[in-house]
Amino acid sequence: MLWLKAFHIIAVICWFAGIFYLPRLFVYHAMAEDQATRDHLKIMERKLYRFISPFAVLTVVFGTLLIAQNPDYYLRAGWLHVKLLFVVGLIAYHLYCGQIVKKFANEQNQHQHVFYRWLNEAPVIALFVIVILAVTRPF
């Protein structure tokens, strides 16, 4: 179980590193005025999204395997249900970021940099809630 937990945490860290940085690239992209910069950011966004996507999958896989180690406890734990709700939200956020990557790639961005600055804050809130729930197991 400790190995699963270690790999779960590693996958989460790698996923979050990208989830924190990708919207920052969107901010720069929305602010970019010259085509060369926008083209460079398109490449960075696409590569980063492709890099972090497997870590999102691994996070879910290792988390599921951890739950499977003691399903009687975990499936009755209220804190886990809330945590999983936030994880589902993060997966939706991740997929939404993928749609934004495609929009930038096709020169179809519809938002200003301020929108992406706010978008960048959502995973921070989710991270706080998820870690606090996983560590304290309050209910």
Rank of each mutant, 00 (worst) to 15 (best):
V131H: 03
R50D: 00
Y49V: 10
I10G: 02
F115N: 03
H81S: 11
P71L: 03
A56H: 02
L66C: 07
P54D: 13
R137V: 15
F20M: 02
V57E: 12
V88H: 11
L95D: 10
Q69N: 13
L22Q: 05
L95N: 11
A68K: 08
G63T: 08
R46V: 07
I125S: 08
G89H: 09
F86C: 01
N106K: 12
F26Q: 06
L58S: 06
P54F: 12
I52F: 02
A56G: 08
F62H: 02
Y116R: 13
L80F: 14
Q99M: 01
T37Q: 15
P123V: 04
V27G: 02
F139G: 11
Y28V: 10
V101E: 00
A11I: 13
Q35C: 04
Y96R: 09
H113Q: 14
I91N: 09
A36W: 15
R137D: 08
L2M: 05
H81E: 08
I52H: 02
R117F: 02
K42N: 14
A92Q: 03
A126H: 08
L58M: 07
I125F: 12
N109E: 05
R24C: 10
H40E: 14
D72P: 07
L4R: 12
F104I: 04
V114I: 15
I67H: 01
V57R: 04
L127H: 14
L25K: 00
I67Q: 07
G78N: 07
L66A: 00
L85F: 10
N120V: 02
N106V: 13
F86E: 09
V129K: 04
R117W: 04
G89F: 03
K47S: 06
I9G: 05
Q108F: 13
I13C: 06
E45C: 04
R46N: 05
L66S: 01
D39R: 09
A36Y: 12
P123F: 00
V87K: 00
V114D: 09
R76F: 01
T59M: 13
L127E: 11
E33A: 06
N120M: 06
R76E: 15
M1P: 13
R76I: 01
F139T: 03
R24P: 09
V124C: 09
N109R: 02
Y96S: 15
L90Q: 14
I132N: 03
L84F: 00
V129P: 00
F128V: 15
A126K: 04
F128T: 13
T64L: 13
I9E: 06
I9W: 06
P123M: 00
F20A: 03
Y49E: 04
A126D: 05
V27E: 07
I132R: 07
L127A: 15
K47T: 11
G18C: 06
G18A: 07
V129M: 10
A105Y: 08
V131S: 15
L75M: 14
V114C: 02
K83P: 15
L22F: 05
A36V: 05
L66F: 01
F62K: 11
E107N: 13
A36G: 04
V135Y: 04
L25Q: 11
E107M: 10
A11Y: 08
Y21F: 13
I10R: 02
D34N: 10
L127R: 14
R76D: 10
L133V: 03
Q112N: 11
F7Y: 13
